[in-house]
């Protein structure tokens, strides 16, 4: 490979090339037709395992995945048009798509009342920004969203949401630094009186192990019965994504996930981990800091990305 070509390629392309080459080496002796033997598949799966771990898919999730795919791949006919390496990659890719899918960006609205969406997640994952993005997305759908400043802890969080609201041309409900439960309730009232049909509550970032603050979320949930509780997850998250997602899900029964900061070069294996432990659909992805940078989640694109394709 010449240098300019190498420079043009992203990290992911290179990762995929390396993976393909390694798999090709594994299958070198397996020419033409025939069935994939268990030994062949096992050896190939070692490379797949490595690729998934390098993409930050959780260790245990990888283990289960590899076992499942091994079973599926053993004994399969090697199709004429494909090399065994490509075939294994295809099986792996399909299985990743299946696990992260189906594509589901449907948001659950209330028929008669004001719909309530609540954003939750760790510190700095992108909740406030995503409130603005989702608000803009909804207003383009013809909705009349109200953003709600229920983060009373982070310095200037309220101001941040106000600036975001102004940028997307949406009203922002604030009540200073009062109890977030009271703020959320009052916001719902306000929305009802002002003709807003959906409120998006920006909650403070918190650790999943912070019992007091997790309880606060439970109280908000109880007070305003959200139609959507969306966990906002940084796509650069590593192995701990499962602990975080599992705890948030156990306490709040999440309805969906939003993956942020996918505009970088992270392989984003956390997507697979959080889907695996919560079973909730990944509805949207954040692909930039601009408030228009929100896209639907495509499981097939994510599978390719995790594999470095």
């Amino acid at each position: 490979m010449n240098l300019p070509c190498l420079l043009k390629k992203g990290v992911n392309d290179l990762a995929f090339e390396a993976l393909t080459q390694k798999l090709e080496a594994v299958f070198k002796r397996l020419r033409g037709k025939g069935k994939l033997s268990e030994a062949d598949v096992k050896q190939a799966m070692r490379e797949i395992r490595l690729a998934l771990l390098e993409a930050d898919v959780n260790y245990k999730v990888v283990k289960d995945f590899v076992q499942k795919v091994t079973e599926r791949a053993v004994g399969q006919e090697v199709m004429e048009s494909l090399t065994p390496a490509q075939q294994v990659i295809k099986i792996v890719h399909d299985e990743l798509v299946r696990l992260m899918g189906p594509k589901d960006t449907k948001l659950n609205f209330s028929q008669s009342k004001v719909s309530v969406f609540m954003m939750v997640g760790l510190q700095g994952s992108g909740k406030t920004t995503t409130c603005g993005k989702l608000g803009l997305y909804l207003s383009k759908m013809g909705k009349r969203p109200l953003l709600v400043a229920a983060d009373i802890y982070r310095p200037a969080a309220i101001k941040q949401l106000q600036v975001v609201g102004e940028k997307v041309g949406l009203p922002v409900f604030t009540m200073g630094e009062q109890d977030p439960v009271a703020i959320s309730k009052a916001a719902l009232e306000h929305a009802f009186r002002h003709g807003n049909d959906v409120v998006i509550i920006d909650t403070a970032g918190r650790l999943h192990i912070d019992d007091e603050l997790m309880e606060e979320l439970e109280r908000i949930k109880e007070a305003v019965t959200p139609n959507e509780i969306l966990l906002v997850v940084d796509s650069m998250t590593g192995q701990d994504a499962v602990n975080v997602a599992e705890t948030f899900h156990n306490r709040l029964h999440l309805t969906g996930l939003i993956l942020t900061k996918l505009d970088g070069d992270t392989r984003g294996g956390a997507a697979l981990s959080i889907k695996a432990v919560t079973g909730c659909p990944i509805k949207f992805v954040g692909v930039g800091e601009k408030l228009t940078d929100l896209e639907p989640f495509y499981p097939d694109r994510m599978a390719s990305r995790i594999l470095g394709m």
């Binding site: 990290v11 390098e54 993409a55 930050d56 760790l122 700095g124 940084d234 650069m236 998250t237 590593g238 192995q239 701990d240 994504a241 975080v244 970088g264 070069d265 992270t266 392989r267 294996g269 956390a270």
Partner: peptide
């Protein structure tokens, strides 16, 4: 660096 970050932190 955020301790929650995975391998992307190397890049």
């Amino acid at each position: 660096l955020d301790a929650t970050t995975g391998q992307n932190a190397i890049a």
